[in-house]
């Protein structure tokens, strides 16, 4: 119980630190980013709601007010989910833009990460079980080689070969222009077809860590006493490999899974830009280009909070699965 309380406390503290970091970044900048945005918005033909201007100021900085007051108002606005207007996508609000983009990224990242985790740990376990054979060298050397390639380069090559040269898949976008977005099987199939290449890019880079990590863990657990006991008892190979060695080797990967999500969101920034995939990464990339600070700030915050939440859940899960962890901290 103490373990879970401690983890919850730590999560709340980390969350507070991330929210504060998000408050400080725009305020540490030279000049006044909020003023720049407000002036640009004032130049728009359409009338801007003063409430929205206020929300932008709360997020990015209010002149002539003490930092404490600003901080308090900022927290208040966050609780109400009020991030202000997007400058780049005027007159839409930041919340609206994020709500549009989030499902794409969540689906893409969710599906690819689960496949990468299962395939990666499976391949890593296989390599460890058959270590020092051709299978092992193929898997370990292959993934080490792939890990040295720049992420953006892998994505560019996928487009170049599979889209531009072979024309198997579309170059980018989330769905074809002629299809009307609706919950029909045709539209879903079209969505999936467009998602194949970005997903493949995330899959290739996403599974490498699991392969190498799982191989290391499993080589260790294969050498430990309980595995040798299992072999001595005359259990079948398959049973020794999966229920004895792989099961214990899997635990560190659960924590790794959550930590890796931070890297994956970085990956979507690059992948979605390359494939013009309308998710959070593309939105963030465009926000940088437009100097759309309200949107940028909100995306950074949401990404960070999502990763923190995933880490917290992983900690809880490991605590449930592994009694040793619980006992250590009490």
């Amino acid at each position: 119980m103490l373990y879970f309380l401690r983890k919850t406390g730590l999560f709340v503290l980390t969350l507070w630190a991330a929210v504060t970091l998000n408050f400080l970044i725009p305020r540490l900048q030279p000049g006044d980013p909020a003023e720049a945005i407000v002036q640009k918005l004032a130049g728009q033909a359409q009338q801007v709601d003063p409430e929205q201007i206020r929300a932008i100021r709360l997020m990015l900085g209010v002149p002539d007010t003490s930092l404490w007051n600003q901080y308090w108002d900022y927290l208040n606005a966050l609780v109400h989910g009020n991030f202000g207007l997007s400058y780049g996508y005027f007159p839409y609000s930041v919340t609206h833009m994020i709500a549009e983009a989030l499902p794409y990224t969540l689906t893409l990242v969710g599906v690819t990460q689960i496949i990468a985790f299962v395939a990666g740990t499976g391949l890593g376990a296989w390599a460890a079980w058959r270590r020092n054979t051709k299978i092992d060298s193929f898997i370990s050397l292959g993934s080490t080689f792939l890990s040295t390639l720049p992420f953006f380069w892998i994505a560019l090559m996928l487009i170049y070969v599979l889209a531009n040269t072979l024309h198997w898949f579309p170059e980018g976008g989330a769905y074809s222009g002629e299809i009307v977005p609706a919950f029909s099987s045709g539209f879903v199939a079209d969505l999936a077809y467009h998602a194949v290449l970005p997903a493949l890019a995330l899959l290739i880079t996403g599974s490498i860590g699991w392969i190498l990590g799982m191989r290391n863990n499993m080589v260790q657990s294969l050498g430990s006493d309980y595995t040798r006991l299992a072999v001595a008892k005359g259990l079948k190979e398959r049973r020794v490999a999966w229920t004895y060695a792989a099961r214990i080797a899997l635990l560190p990967n659960f924590t790794g899974f959550a930590i890796s999500l931070g890297g994956v969101f970085g990956g979507t920034l690059i992948v979605e830009q390359i494939f013009s995939y309308p998710g959070m990464g593309k939105l963030m990339y465009d926000a940088i280009g437009n100097r759309d600070f309200p949107l940028l700030q909100a995306i950074f915050l949401i990404t960070t909070v999502a990763v923190l939440l995933a880490n917290f859940l992983a900690d809880v899960l490991v605590g449930v699965l592994d009694p040793r962890v619980r006992r250590q901290s009490s």
Binding site: T14, A18, G262, F265, L269, M284, Q297, L308, N311
Partner: peptide, 24 residues
């Protein structure tokens, strides 16, 4: 230790681009 753990989980590339985007 808390700072270390915080810096480990905050997504690096989004943080980098957010800071870089502000820089003149």
């Amino acid at each position: 230790s808390f700072s270390i753990n915080l810096a480990l989980v905050v997504p690096a590339l989004p943080l980098m681009v957010t800071i870089a985007a502000y820089s003149p």
